[in-house]
Amino acid sequence: MTFALDRFDLDDFVAATLAEDLGEGGDITSAAVIPIAARFTGSMRSREEIVVAGLPIAEAFFRALDPQVLIERAVEDGERAETGRILLRVEGRAQALLTAERSALNILQHLSGVATSTRRHVDAIAGTGAILLDTRKTIPGLRALEKYATRMGGARNHRMRLDDAAMIKDNHVAIAGGVGEAVRRAVAAGIERIIVEVDHLDQIEPAIGAGATHLLLDNMGPAALREAVAMVGGRVPTEASGGLALDTIREAALTGVTYVSVGRITQSAPAVDIGLDFTAA
């Protein structure tokens, strides 16, 4: 099955990553130590409990350097994998597999880390009715992949790009001269989705009255969130955002908000421990 994401070229990503790693001289260690005809088999295993994301991309690195490599996938992206679980098996030219190993592991460890962190937050709000959203707090150049990983972890993608929707924040409001005026300008520009960051409860009515379609309730505690939800009365979706952590997200979700958004699931997710152990065939 072909791996495809909107506005993401897997072949270009693999080529650029390998070029960065190979440098001008290539993998001088493998070239010097491993006979060109040598073949290796190996298993990629999780060394902790994770949610898997990025296997098709990891596989692409092996295929780029050994088009005849044999790959057997043991799990699929989005699945939980316990400690010691085999994720995939590979068999092919030893030099090629060793050269691709680090690039394949780097992306798989990172994306699985994002998916694992995301799933923990999704589990934390289970049963509240709130939906977890990701943010644009992503590593430059990796947004499509990191937002793919959050989907594998159970979140819903928020804005992918600045042109997906207007998001009016405090600086926009300050320059425009007020929440209502900022929203009216967005409406006049013909923008259909207008998200407004609300710092104070008294901004709610001006924002909705001017045409906001979504309110981001920024850095509000549970009491303020409940009051805001009551004031909105279901007229537009509400989103709790800012300062939420794994130990506080459920309390925010229980206030009745439509969404909770967490930047740390992409911005601060630690890479998980996955290893690739080769055995001579």
Rank of each mutant, 00 (worst) to 15 (best):
R159G: 04
V232I: 08
A207E: 08
V196G: 00
R80D: 07
T29V: 14
V75H: 02
T266Y: 10
I28W: 14
L254I: 04
D134Y: 12
L111S: 11
Q203A: 09
P206M: 05
A228C: 00
A188V: 07
M167F: 13
T266A: 11
N106F: 09
D164F: 09
L111G: 09
F278S: 05
G113W: 04
E101Q: 15
E48H: 05
A124H: 03
A252P: 03
A212M: 05
G154R: 03
A126M: 05
G84Y: 08
L225C: 05
E91R: 14
I191W: 10
P56I: 10
F40E: 14
D247E: 15
L98F: 14
A212F: 02
K147M: 11
I191T: 11
L133H: 13
R73N: 14
S43A: 15
I50Q: 08
G209D: 11
A155G: 11
R185P: 07
F61V: 06
R85G: 01
V52C: 11
A100W: 04
D21L: 06
V229A: 03
A100V: 09
G180R: 06
S112E: 06
R156D: 09
D134M: 13
G233I: 05
I28G: 01
L111R: 06
G141Q: 05
R7C: 01
L246W: 04
R119P: 00
S117N: 06
I131D: 00
R93P: 02
V122G: 11
D66I: 12
V260K: 09
E205V: 10
R143M: 05
A176M: 12
T150H: 09
V52A: 12
A281T: 15
G234R: 01
H200E: 14
Q203W: 02
L225E: 08
L18R: 11
V236R: 06
N157M: 02
R45F: 09
D273Y: 00
L142R: 13
T83S: 12
G242K: 05
N219D: 06
M220W: 10
A81T: 10
A53W: 02
R85N: 09
L108W: 12
V33P: 11
P206G: 03
A207Q: 10
V179N: 00
A281I: 14
A188Q: 13
G221S: 03
L132F: 10
N157G: 06
V236F: 06
V232M: 00
D12P: 00
Y259R: 02
I195Y: 15
A126T: 12
I195L: 15
K169R: 07
R156W: 08
R250F: 05
